[in-house]
């Protein structure tokens, strides 16, 4: 490696952005080149000075107070229509924690997707498939292949048809009765769908694989139907229905709290 190439790669090496093979080559060059070593020392000196001497301004308490005030004001207006359905704090924290984990996991995989620019497309495709599956089921004679209000019948029915049988739970007591289940396709994958009924509304819960899941907490609307994502035990799931926001929020909460 010559000094010209080395000087181009040095900042990347210094910032931890250089791949392993090139790093080894650069290190070999540095061993024999005092000039390039000086450049590296110069970069390090500058960084040390910036981190030690330049101010990192902390957010003033005034700013934090303003944001908390907005937050409280918004919570107050949101509480009026949904007072009984707001998540208890512990539940909320647990959900927040699950997002953090999802993001941590996401940060490992997402850069690869981003570079291909295909991540958004793939996730949009999942949403389209989920909506299409729901509508197709509504148009068919019956939205489910196995009819049962018993979770102990629905879960075993899935076993053997797909790789991982989902956690199935009935919420009849809370007004969301388990009606049955079916197999649907998202992309090229067979996924289990749990069907619930709430009044006249049919609710589909698509249990997705970790790779296919749309971002947690993201809500997509299409032609009066809403898709919301939730963690069903350890598996991400997409809920689709035409329920109102308040009922949907309550159902999301019920599903999310299932063991």
């Amino acid at each position: 490696m010559d000094c010209k190439t080395a000087s181009e790669l040095l900042p990347l090496y210094f910032d931890g952005e250089l791949d392993r093979v090139s790093s080894r080559e650069l290190e070999a060059h540095l061993d024999g080149c005092a000039d390039c070593r000086d450049v590296l020392v110069g970069l390090d000196t500058l960084r040390t000075r910036l981190r030690d001497e330049a101010s990192r301004h902390a957010a003033p308490e005034l700013l934090r107070a303003r944001i908390r005030k907005d937050l409280a004001a918004r919570a107050a207006t949101a509480a009026t229509p949904t007072a009984t359905f707001r998540m208890p704090r512990a539940r909320w924290l647990a959900l927040a924690a699950s997002w953090v984990i999802m993001f941590a996991a996401g940060s490992v995989f997402v850069p690869a997707w981003n570079q291909a620019g295909a991540a958004g497309d793939a996730r949009d495709q999942v949403a389209r498939d989920v909506f299409a599956g729901h509508w197709r089921a509504l148009a068919a004679n019956s939205p489910y292949d196995v009819v049962s209000t018993d979770q102990h019948t629905v879960k075993p029915w899935f076993e053997g048809k797909i790789a991982v049988a989902p956690a199935v739970q009935d919420f009849a007591a809370q007004g969301f009765a388990l009606a049955g289940g079916r197999i649907d396709y998202v992309g090229s994958a067979r996924v289990p769908v749990l069907v619930y009924r709430h009044g006249h509304h049919v609710i589909d819960v698509f249990v997705l694989s970790q790779n296919d899941a749309p971002p947690q907490g993201k809500r997509i609307e299409s032609q009066g139907y809403v898709m919301e994502t939730v963690m069903l035990g350890s598996q991400p799931a997409a809920i689709v229905s035409d329920m109102g926001d308040v009922e949907l929020a309550r159902f999301v909460q019920l599903l999310g709290s299932a063991r």
Partner: peptide, 9 residues
């Protein structure tokens, strides 16, 4: 939704 809000905050 409430979930989005909480996440942003």
């Amino acid at each position: 939704s409430i979930i989005d809000q909480g996440f942003i905050d």
